[in-house]
């Protein structure tokens, strides 16, 4: 290490700017998760319907979203939709739309999995006690699915945060972009800035995701 590139981080408001950049991605992921949860619950229930038509539709939606890299979906939303429909979606909006579509599919699949994992006997026992379908759903099905879903939903949040790092590739100014600006601005004074800046970004992401993962794992153990 020929120079002290680490100093770049403490110059002016550089570190603060990085944090602000991180907030851009965190904000997009948070909004996406908050929208995905209720939509995913509806989608998950929709997927458990026995109707062949609804089954086919939800299947195609889920499979398409799942098989495409999220970056491809981002490109389609950002470059394709803008042109095809003449809407000009900003990068922020198209990113949020894509992550909500993706999150809804993933959340829906989690909800579906939790719903069908409840043994038929649980329904029979509830019916045998004179409960109506609605009562069975509220008192037996929902609490049991809820417990299974909480850790999985928290996990989905970390996946969402990691995935939103992609938005830099459609030009959103987030933490990686800010990092690059800082590096470029100090190219001659601190040639080794890149190591420190990207190292710090790496750690920032870790600090954002790791506690959430730990929490999910703990809950999974307790309720699993």
């Amino acid at each position: 290490m020929q120079d002290s590139g680490i100093n770049v981080l403490f110059m002016g408001s550089n570190f603060l700017r990085l944090l602000e950049g991180l907030c851009v991605t965190l904000r997009i992921s948070l909004i996406s998760v908050i929208l995905s949860i209720p939509l995913g619950i509806f989608f998950g229930i929709f997927m458990t319907l026995k109707n062949p038509f609804s089954k086919a539709i939800s299947r195609i939606y889920l499979e398409f979203i799942r098989i495409m890299p999220q970056l491809v979906l981002l490109f389609i939303a950002y470059f394709g939709v803008t042109r095809a429909f003449g809407w000009s979606l900003s990068a922020d909006v198209s990113a949020t739309v894509v992550f909500v579509l993706w999150g809804t599919a993933e959340m829906g699949d989690l909800v579906r999995g939790a719903l069908i994992s409840i043994p038929k006997n649980q329904y029979d026992s509830a019916f045998a006690l004179g409960m109506t379908k609605a009562q069975t759903f509220i008192h037996i099905v929902v609490p049991q699915t809820f417990r299974r879903l909480i850790p999985l939903t928290i996990n989905l949040t970390t996946r969402m945060i990691k995935t939103t790092s992609l938005v830099v590739l459609i030009g959103i100014t987030e933490v990686l972009k800010v990092g690059k600006q800082i590096i470029d601005a100090n190219r001659f004074e601190y040639p080794s800035a890149a190591l420190w800046v990207y190292g710090v970004i790496f750690l920032l992401y870790f600090l954002a995701c790791w506690p959430i993962s730990v929490m999910a794992k703990k809950l999974e153990k307790r309720w699993g």
Binding site: D124, A126, F127, A128, L129, G130, R147
Partner: peptide, 19 residues
């Protein structure tokens, strides 16, 4: 549901509510 309240049923696999 009214009639079932008069008939109790117990299953082989207990099926208590785990939560």
């Amino acid at each position: 549901t009214k009639l079932r309240q008069k008939i109790g049923m117990v299953f082989q696999s207990y099926d208590l509510f785990p939560h």
